[in-house]
Design a protein around this nucleic acid. Sequence first.
DNA 1: CTCCCCTTAAACAGTA
DNA 2: CTACTGTTTAAGGGGA
Length: 672
Amino acid sequence: MMQESGTETKSNGSAIQNGSSGGNHLLECGGLREGRPNGETPAVDVGAADLAHVQQQQALQVARQLLLQQQQQQVSGLKSPKRNDKQPALQVPVSVAMMTPQVITPQQMQQILQQQVLSPQQLQVLLQQQQALMLQQQLQEFYKKQQEQLQLQLLQQHAGKQPKEQQQVSTQQLAFQQQLLQMQQLQQQHLLSLQRQGLLTIQPGQPALPLQPLAQGMIPTELQQLWKEVTSAHTTEETTGNNHSSLDLTTTCVSSSAPSKTSLIMNPHASTNGQLSVHTPKRESLSHEEHPHSHPLYGHGVCKWPGCEAVCEDFQSFLKHLNSEHALDDRSTAQCRVQMQVVQQLELQLAKDKERLQAMMTHLHVKSTEPKTAPQPLNLVSSVTLSKSASEASPQSLPHTPTTPTAPITPVTQGPSVITTTSMHTVGPIRRRYSDKYNVPISSADIAQNQEFYKNAEVRPPFTYASLIRQAILESPEKQLTLNEIYNWFTRMFAYFRRNAATWKNAVRHNLSLHKCFVRVENVKGAVWTVDEVEFQKRRPQKISGNPSLIKNMQTSHAYCTPLNAALQASMAENSIPLYTTASMGNPTLGNLASAIREELNGAMEHTNSNESDSSPGRSPMQAVHPVHVKEEPLDPEEAEGPLSLVTTANHSPDFDHDRDYEDEPVNEDME
DNA sequence: CTCCCCTTAAACAGTA
DNA sequence: CTACTGTTTAAGGGGA
C-alpha cells in the first residue's frame, strides 16, 4: 500500500489479479530454465517403488552385467573391494540368463545394487547394453519358439481336424512363414548394424556405449512384439474369426519396418518389453493359450498408449484403435521416443533410489522394512527430525560414495540425482520438458517415501509454491508461520530448496503476497502467515470443472501427472498393479498417493468433506463455479477476511519456537 | 493463437 | 547501513 506513489491502484490491482487462478501446475513445467544461475537441472526423480516389479527383471540384468564387469575388472587387476562370494553363482552366461531370468533372485540383485559399485552413469550405460543384449537374446529365443510353434501348428494342420479353421490357419501360417523370413532377414541386418557399431558385442561387460544406438536395439523387440501380436491375434482369430485387423496390422508393420525407419516405431513396446524378462515365459503361454488381452498396450479395457486411454471394448477394437490412432506417424514416433526416455529414466531412477534407500537405511541403522505409511497427504512433519541430520548434512555431497555401513553421516543423497539429471538430459535430444515432467516423483508408492525422497534428493518438488507454502502453514501446530519459518520448512523438507535461496525465497514472498489465500496476520511479535482455505480452494474449481470423472480430470489437469501417469500405468498394468487413475481409491498405497495428489495440488475435494466443510459455506468447489468465468470476477474485497476466523483466532502464540528448529539455516530466526 | 497460471527477477518501501 | 519483510510489476514458459 505504501507504494501508492510509485504506481497507483496497487491494492486494487492485486485484488483483481488474484481473483482468478486455479492452476495447480507444478514447478516442473514452467519453472525450470536452462539459464538458471546455479543451473542444477531439476531432476529426474521418481520414487519408483511402484515400478519395482517391473524393474526388477531389468535390474536383474543390470546386476548380472555389473557382476560380469566387475569380474573382468578384477581379472585385469582392478580393485573391486566389495564383491562378495555370490558371484560364482551369478556368472551366468547372458544368453542363458536371458532365458531363465529367475536365476538371480531379487535378493541377490539387491545385494549387487547395494554394493554400489557403479555410478548412475555407469548403471545407465550398463542398462542400455543390457537392453540391447537382452533384446537380442530374446529375439533369438523368440525365433526358436516361433518356429517350433509353426511346426507344431503345421503338424496339427496335417492332422486336419476342422477343415475350415485349419484352412484359415494355414493361410495365416503362410503369412507367418513369410514374415518369419522377413524378420530373420531384418534381424540379421540389425545384428550386423549393431555389431558394426560395436553395440552388440557378444561378450558381456564391455565399455560404455553410445546412447543413440539404443533405439536400434529396439528393433528386435519390435519384431518380437509384432509376433506376439500375430500369435495372440492368431489364436484369437481361430475363435472369433476376425483376422483381418490383426494380420493387416502385422503385415503392414513388418513391411513398413524398413531397417532405418522402424527403429522408432515400436519403441513403447520395446521399452516395455525390454525391461520385462517376464515376457519370455509369457510369450510361450501366449502362443499356446489365448491371451488376447495381454497386449502391453491394452489393459483394463483401455488403450495404454501413453496419453491415450481410449476405451476399447475388446481386444479387437483395441487392435483397430491401435491401428488407426497409433499408426506410424510423427506423433507416434515422438511418443515412442518419449516413452523410451521415460523407461530409461525410470530404470535409472529406480536403481538410484534403491541405492539411496539402502544407504539411508544403513546410515540410520533402520530395519529394512519401514512400516510407515503416511495416511496423510504430505505430512512430513513426523519424520522431520529424523531425517534432518542426514539430509542437511550435505546438500550437495559427493556424487557417489560406497557407503560404509559404519559411516555416521553419509552423504547418500543429492549428488547422484543431479548428475543423472544432467546426463539424462544430454542424452535425450527429446523434449526435455517431457522428460522432466515424467520424472516427477509422484510415482513413488506412498507419500512418506516421497517425503524422504525430497528431503534427500535435490529434486524439484512438483508442487507450486503456493501449495508448498500452504502445506507448510497447515502443518504447523498453530496453522500459521512466519516467513522465516516457512523458509525453514522449505529447506527442511526439500533438499532442492537448500540452494538458490535468494531465488526461491523471493518466490515464496512473492506468492505470499500475490495469492489471496495467504493472509498475513499481525502479531505481537511480528506477523505470521495463515492460509485462507476458502480462497485457496477457489482456485481449484476452475480447472476441475466438477464432474464424475473428476479424479481423472485432476490427473490430466496436472501436467506433470499425465505423462508419468501414462508411463506408469503401462508399467503397473504389467504387474497388475492397480492404476491410481481408476482403481486407486480402493488401494491403500496408491490411494494414499492419489489422495495426496489431490490434496496437494487441488485441495478441493479433500477439503470439501474434511477440513473445510464447515468454513466453505455450501459451495462445493467443484460445482460452484462454472469452468471459466472466474477470471475477471472482481471478487469482493471482503471475502478475504471472512473465512479468516479459523486461523486468526489462533494467532496468539507468543513465540513459535517449538515449531522452529532451524539448525539448518543461519537465518535470523531470532531477529528481534 | 490467446488466455491463464506459475515461476523468476527485480524494484521499491517499511522496519528492525 | 544492512538485512529482512512485503508488495508489485514484468517477462517468459507452458498448458488448456
